[in-house]
Structure formats: C-alpha cells, structure tokens
Design a protein around this nucleic acid. Structure first.
Lengths: 208, 208
DNA sequence: TCAAAAAGTGACGATACGTTCATAGTTTCT
DNA sequence: AGAAACTATGAACGTATCGTCACTTTTTGA
C-alpha cells in the first residue's frame, strides 16, 4: 500500500494494461470469450500478440483480470450505495439507482457480468467463479442486513426472511437490467427506483 | 402428423438419437458446450464419431436440437400449469409448483437452460437464441395475462404493470432455483409456493 | 555517445478439435 | 445363399488458436 512511487514507465505500463483490458472487454462482451482469439485482442489494442503475454500469463488470466477488476468497481459502487446515510427505504432506493447508473455507464461489462454471474459457470475455470461469487455475496449480505434492520425497527413487515428478500430484489433488478440491455427503447430502465421497489413495498393482494 | 407408421428401424433410430442427446446433455450441463468434444459424446453414447454425424449435421446442430427439445418440454409444462383451471392466485401457485417439479426432475438441463436463457447469448449462433427466446416469451405472455385478468377482476391490486410483474416473478423463481441448484441443502426450494408468492402478495411496507 | 537492459514483435511449433470418407460390417430381400 | 442396400466406424485431414522465443527496436543511464 505505498502512496505513489510510480515511475513514468510504470504509469505507462499501467495505462497499456488498461488499454489491453479495454479492448478485450469490448470484444468479449460482443462475441464471448471463446470467439475472441488473442490475435484479435492484440490488433484491437495495437500490440503484438507477444506483448499481451508480457502483461498476462495466458488468455484465461487476462479474462479473469478483466472480470475481477470490473467486478471490484461494481461491488464498491453497490456497497457504497447501500451504506450511504438514510433509512432502510432510502438505502434500497440508492441500491437500485446504483445498479441503474453502473449499467448505464458500463453496458459492455454488464453483458459479461450477467453471463458470468448467472449459470454459465462452466465457461471458465473454477477460480474466477469463486472469487466473483464472493463479491456478489458480499453485496447480498449487506442487502440482507438492510431488510433485517428494517424489520427490527418496524419499517418493514416480516413477509419473508431477509436473505430471500435480498435475493429476490437483486434478481428483479437483474431482470429489468436484462430487458433494458436487450431493447433500451422498448424497456427503458425506470428512472424512479420505486417503480421497481413498489413490487416489494406494496402488496399484490388487497389486505384481508 | 401421422399416428404411428414407424418401422422397427425407425423406432430404433429414434431411441439412438435420444441416447446421444442424453449423453450430450449430461456432458454439456457439467462442462459446458466448449469443453465437450464430439469424441467424448460419442464415447459416452457408445457410438463412433462418424455415427453422430448421421444424426446431426454438426456439433452446433446437436446442441441446438438438445436445447430446443428440452425447451419444448419445459414450455409445455409451464403453459399447462398456468392454464390449468383455477383463479389467478391458483394459476400462479401452479406455475411455481411446475417450476419446482421440472427443476427437480431435470436438474442437468436446468443448468444449461439458465445459462442459455440468461446473458450468455453469445455462447452460440443466433438461431438458438431467437427460437428459445420465443418459447420463454410465450410463457411470459401467459403469465402477464394472469396478472392482467387478476387486476381486471379485482383479485390483484395494480401495484405495477402486468408484464413487469410477470418478469419479476419469473426472475425471482429463477433466483430461488439457482440457489437451490448450487446448494440443495442450504437453500431447498420451498415446498409451499406461497413462500415465494408472498413476496409479491404481501406488501413490505405497513399500509400508510 | 554508446552499450547494456528493457520492451515489443510476430513467425512458428504444438495441440486440440470438428468433420469427412473409404472401408468394414450388418441387414434385407430374392 | 448371395448380392444389393444400408449402416457404422475411426483414422486422417484441415483448420484454428494458444503460447513461445529468437530477434529487433527502443529506452536508459553512464
């Protein structure tokens, strides 16, 4: 954890690394891991193949670095949203907004992320999966606690256990993101977070 | 649509085809499309490679046949559940139950199906994706109509538009299925459909 | 300025996999 | 029984792509 003892060269290399990852992200998100040869990434990043192997041990390593680093950004953004000051309802709103904003600004990665976090876990070796899961679980954990404390202080009714609610909310947001990714005009992501949250806040059945 | 003018040989071939697809399903669901060579499928099905190519034009064709035929079964089961007699609430319960049952009895395919229907659309050529989407959309359409009619006849409150509710319910069930697939002991799929439906039926917020 | 070190290059070797097809085996029919 | 028709086989071929490494170019620092 040193502050900034970075030589010019070191900064340059970091920048190059970033550019490789950016090129790779664009390609992977468009065609999928298996349909992008290293050659193509090299060309897109304007490097020779050999150079990529100076930065990453192999193709999988490159992919993993890409997913993990973007995953970190997403986890951080979501965690910050949940932990921002406000009551439980506001925290949930912040979370929905954070999801919307991150998705808006990182569409290419969102496609990869969804593909990666959902079922297709055999796409790649086990390592990635486990590490990524950890990040997702960390966010889920925080969400669970929001529901929990909301129930404790009477702001929420105990209609289901907090973890189930967290999973449910997360999956519903995912679904809306997916709709939006597939056709932004037909299914715009709602501006007002309550458009989604009301599904959970308000009951479908008239009270007995 | 002839009845049963099937020669013995024809029945045999159909059976062989089924066995190839079964072997392929087991392998694909475990390792993913790209990590299963035709050779391996052939061995598992106890045929020579060349024989597989008598049944399917190529690997992708085999995979597509597999996914589509299983997809048909799932679509039929879900459609039947939704359209079984009963009020809207019962229809939703039937749908949740159908999902649970199909998943219980077809775990290997469920993994594939989730991977395929969610983001990883670049796993394969466009054709599959579109055809599978159609089936999913058909079910979604039916679900939407359940919410719609429930709102019309006052059984449901209009807390969100019917399509959004259909998408939301579907994604929540998906999420629970995923949890269950990953660790059946830690996250058993709830026996009582209302354990899931209550998230939608009951409101999280105390009525104002 | 120049030599040593670092960085960048891309043709090439190795491997893995999809698909073909000439051949061998089996069934059917006369 | 024997020939014709049909079916199954798997070695071999072509292609694609990963990752290496001997070499060239650039940078560094004395």
């Amino acid at each position: 954890m040193k502050n900034t003892p970075l030589s010019r060269r070191e900064r340059e290399k970091l920048q190059q690394r970033k550019e490789i990852l950016a090129a790779a992200l664009a390609l992977f998100s468009e065609k999928g891991y298996h349909n992008v040869p290293m050659q193509e990434i090299a060309e897109a990043a304007e490097f020779a193949i050999g150079t990529l192997y100076k930065f990453f041990q192999n193709k999988e390593d490159l992919y993993k670095a890409l997913v993990m680093e973007q995953g970190d950004r997403f986890e951080a953004a979501f965690a910050a949203a949940i932990q921002a000051p406000g009551d439980e309802i506001e925290k949930l709103r912040n979370f929905v907004r954070a999801r919307r904003d991150m998705c808006r600004d990182n569409l290419p990665f969102v496609r990869l992320f969804i593909a990666e976090s959902k079922g297709a876990s055999f796409n790649l070796k086990a390592g990635l999966d486990a590490d990524l899961r950890e990040k997702i679980d960390a966010v889920m954990e925080k969400l669970t606690r929001v529901f929990e404390s909301g129930m404790k202080n009477g702001r929420f009714l105990k209609i289901a256990d907090p973890y189930s609610l967290a999973v449910a909310l997360d999956s519903v947001i995912d679904a809306f993101v997916l709709l939006w990714v597939e056709s932004p005009e037909r299914h715009p992501f709602p501006e007002d977070p309550d458009a989604i949250l009301d599904i959970f806040f308000k009951g479908l059945l008239p009270k007995a």
